[in-house]
Nucleic acid binder design. Structure first.
Lengths: 194, 194
DNA sequence: CATGAAGTGGACCGCTGGGTCCATAAAGAG
DNA sequence: CTCTTTATGGACCCAGCGGTCCACTTCATG
């Protein structure tokens, strides 16, 4: 399947259109017809660019969204070198998810394609990457003596990742970022030794 | 709709059968036929006892499962009066979710009925209750001077709830309780002031 | 300009799954 | 014992959705 420039553009349009749809108000179940409608394409095209059908398409969207998750936290996530930076990162995370509201594209995706091996791989890669960034930040603060060296940086980083994950999940059903903020603040306080 | 004793028994059998199915290996999408098969009932009965159809049934199952979540943490959750008790509770939570494995009945449920107002209400009630128990435990430890009084008990309790939630979600896709344990330990260390 | 490959549109198919309906069997109530 | 109410079984309906197929168009290349 050799893709021309035009072909690649169409393929990308399908992915991004699907992503837009999933970020919309009522993404309960994304059907191929929904995606077809919003992207202005035809059934033929979808199966032309995603021979694996719906699963392959949704997986591509998941990869696209996973990338956005980390991108939206930059540049803060990559430069956790001072308490002020941690504060900025925290605010960015809260703002991002508050804007996203009750709707979690990756969450919707996972509920539709979560069982497949590919899905676990996408999520796993995202979480690992995320954790590595946070761990890196902690280690840097330990190097400058601002965080006590007795803390296990990787483990606390994992706690951050899980905490955010859970905070977002609560947000999805309650509509409030209160739990998310509480978790981030509690863990940050723990880093500070407060 | 007056229910006889027999009728109530059947209704309950349907709920518990559905719950068993959702705890099974491949609960991706619970269909009425799956539930019908596992509970040894007929379509007629399902709609007789749950006139609201699938949604009403799944909501009943969700209420049933939500109750189990807290029950499975007892008696530890209700008696967080010493560090040893916190330890036991932590172990109970980890054990419960490790046993549950990649499968989260409430998670599956939410992905099928999550958009409805009833679902948010069930989850909301569960989380509020859960948080209240933990907050109560923190307050008791504060009363005995084992936890510094400067901590906002309710907020930290919320962090626990979100952290567990997230840890379980990671477990669902990774199969490992590592994140869950890391979160619980980090927050407990925070309580201890370590 | 010819020719084959890639891109596009949409009719069509078959199955799955929620929901309806009705006929029949138990079970109380008088 | 009858008559109403509740319980049960299962055939049937039909809309939605993923997926197939093929005709047609556009485009690159020699």
């Amino acid at each position: 399947m050799a893709l021309t420039t035009k072909g690649q553009a169409t393929r990308q349009r399908i992915i991004e259109g699907a992503a837009v749809y999933l970020r919309g108000d009522d993404p309960g179940e994304a059907t191929l017809d929904d995606i077809r409608a919003i992207t202005g394409t035809s059934k033929g095209q979808i199966f032309h660019y995603f021979p694996g059908g719906k699963e392959e398409l949704l997986l591509a969207v998941a990869r696209y969204e996973a990338r956005r998750v980390l991108d939206d936290q930059q540049p803060h996530l990559g430069a956790l070198t001072s308490w002020a930076a941690w504060e900025r990162w925290r605010d960015a995370v809260v703002a991002r998810y508050r804007a996203q509201g009750r709707n979690c594209p990756l969450g919707s995706l996972m509920s539709q394609v979560g069982g497949t091996p590919g899905a676990a791989e996408v999520i796993g890669a995202l979480l690992t990457n995320w954790r590595a960034h946070i761990r890196h930040g902690i280690e840097r603060m330990q190097a400058t003596g601002e965080i006590r060296p007795s803390l296990d940086a990787d483990r606390v980083a994992a706690a951050f990742v899980a905490g955010i994950q859970g905070g977002v999940q609560v947000l999805r059903s309650s509509g409030s970022t209160w739990h998310l903020e509480a978790t981030l603040d509690a863990l940050t306080d723990h880093l500070r030794g407060v």
